[in-house]
C-alpha cells in the first residue's frame, strides 16, 4: 500500500463520516433540535470524559473482533456477514466448555474457554466457507442464514437444556464459576476484551499483510483464476480465511461471557456482529484500521444514552446515525481512483 493510497483512503473515509454526520444533523434538525448541540453531545458522550472514553472502549472491544469476521474473508474475495452468529455460537461454546473446565485453574481455564469460543465460531463460519467451496453456495446468504440458526440454537438451549432457573428476569444459561471470569484492565472499567481485540487485529494484520499466506490470499481475493494458475490451494485458503474470521467473532462471544455476563442469554444478540460489518467496510478490510474505526463506532454507541437523556431522542437515533454511516461509506467506495487529486502524476 503506497502513501498515496493510504491518504486517499483516509480522506475518502473521513469525507464519508462527515457526510453521514451532516445528514444526521438534518435528521436532528427535523426533530427541532440544534444540530451543533447534538454534535457536541455526541462528542462529549463518546470522548468528552474519562468515563465516556472507558464506555467507548468497552463498546469498541467486541466490534474489533466481529469486524475481523468480515474483513479476513473479504481479503479472499468473500463477503461474510456471519459475525453475529459466530459470536453467539462462541458464547454458547464458552458456557458449555465451562462445565468440564469448572475445576481448572484460572489462567489455563480462561484460556481454554476463550479457545473453545474461538474454535466454535471458526467452525461455524468455516462451514459456510466449505459450502461455498465444495457446493458453490453463496457465502453471504449462508452466513446470513447461519446467524438466524445460531440465534435459534441459543434460544433453544437457554430456554431448555441449559437454562438456569435461578435467573428470573430473562432466560439465561448456567453461569461460569467466579474464578473463570476475567475482570477489567487495572485502573479502568474497561474489560480485558479490549486487549484481545487489539491483539487479534495486530496479529491478523501481520498475517494478512506480511506473510506468504496473506500474499496468497490477496491473489485469491483479486482473481481466483490467477490463484489457481499459480497452483495455490484455493479450497484450503477459503476455509482458513473463513475459520480465522469466525474465530475472531467467536472470541468476541467468549469475551462477552467470561468478561461481561458470565452466562449466555439474549444479551449476546445485541448487534455487535452487524455493527462489525460496518466497521470492516469503513476500515476497508484493513485489520489495523479496524482498531480505530471500532473506537469511533464504539463512541457513537456509547453516546447513545446521553443523546437519549439530553434530547429525548429515541434509542434508535444512534441506529439512524449508524445506518447513515454505512450508506455513506458504501457510496464512498465508488470514489476510489476517481478523484483527480489522488491520481498518479
Amino acid at each position: 500500500m503506497t502513501i498515496r493510497s493510504s491518504v486517499e483512503t483516509a480522506a475518502i473515509s473521513t469525507a464519508a463520516v462527515l457526510v453521514a454526520l451532516l445528514l444526521f444533523g438534518g435528521f436532528a434538525a427535523a426533530r427541532g433540535l440544534d444540530p451543533l448541540e447534538v454534535y457536541r453531545v455526541l462528542y462529549v458522550g463518546a470522548f468528552g470524559t474519562w468515563f465516556a472514553v472507558q464506555n467507548t472502549l468497552t463498546q469498541a472491544a467486541p466490534l474489533m473482533l466481529t469486524a475481523l469476521c468480515t474483513a479476513v474473508p473479504a481479503r479472499a474475495g468473500l463477503l461474510v456477514i456471519g459475525g453475529e452468529g459466530a459470536l453467539v455460537i462462541g458464547g454458547l461454546a464458552t458456557v458449555l466448555a465451562g462445565v468440564p473446565l469448572a475445576g481448572a485453574p484460572a489462567p489455563l481455564g480462561i484460556a481454554l474457554l476463550c479457545a473453545a469460543g474461538a474454535v466454535a465460531g471458526g467452525l461455524w463460519v468455516g462451514a459456510a466457507g466449505a459450502l461455498r467451496h465444495w457446493r458453490g453456495v453463496n457465502e453471504t446468504i449462508s452466513t446470513l442464514l447461519l446467524n438466524y440458526i445460531a440465534i435459534a440454537v441459543l434460544n433453544h438451549l437457554i430456554t431448555g437444556p441449559i437454562r438456569d432457573f435461578a435467573q428470573v428476569l430473562k432466560p439465561a444459561s448456567w453461569s461460569l464459576g467466579e474464578h473463570l471470569r476475567i475482570g477489567d484492565v487495572p485502573g479502568t472499567s474497561v474489560h480485558w476484551g479490549l486487549a484481545f481485540g487489539v491483539a487479534a487485529c495486530a496479529l491478523l494484520w501481520v498475517l494478512m499483510r506480511r506473510t506468504t499466506f496473506g500474499f496468497a490470499v490477496d491473489i485469491l481475493g483479486g482473481n481466483v483464476r490467477a490463484a489457481r494458475m499459480a497452483g495455490l490451494p484455493v479450497g484450503a485458503m477459503v476455509l482458513v480465511a473463513c475459520f480465522l474470521g469466525g474465530a475472531a467473532a467467536g472470541l468476541a462471544g467468549a469475551v462477552e461471557v467470561v468478561a461481561v455476563h458470565g452466562f449466555a442469554s439474549s444479551s449476546l444478540v445485541v448487534g455487535y456482529g452487524y455493527a462489525g460489518i460496518l466497521v470492516a467496510f469503513l476500515a476497508r478490510q484493513n485489520p489495523l484500521a479496524i482498531v480505530f474505526v471500532s473506537v469511533l463506532l464504539g463512541g457513537i454507541s456509547a453516546s447513545g444514552g446521553l443523546l437519549q437523556r439530553r434530547f429525548g431522542l429515541p434509542d434508535a437515533a444512534t441506529l439512524v446515525l449508524r445506518g447513515l454511516l454505512f450508506v455513506a461509506v458504501l457510496a464512498s467506495t465508488t470514489l476510489y481512483g476517481r478523484l483527480r487529486v489522488f491520481r498518479r502524476p
Binding site: 500474499f215 490477496d218 491473489i219 483479486g222 490467477a226
Partner: peptide, 13 residues
C-alpha cells in the same frame, strides 16, 4: 487480466 493477473495488485506483486 482475466485469467492470470490481479489488476489491483502492483506490477511487482
Amino acid at each position: 487480466l482475466h485469467n492470470s493477473c490481479v489488476r489491483g495488485m502492483s506490477v511487482a506483486e
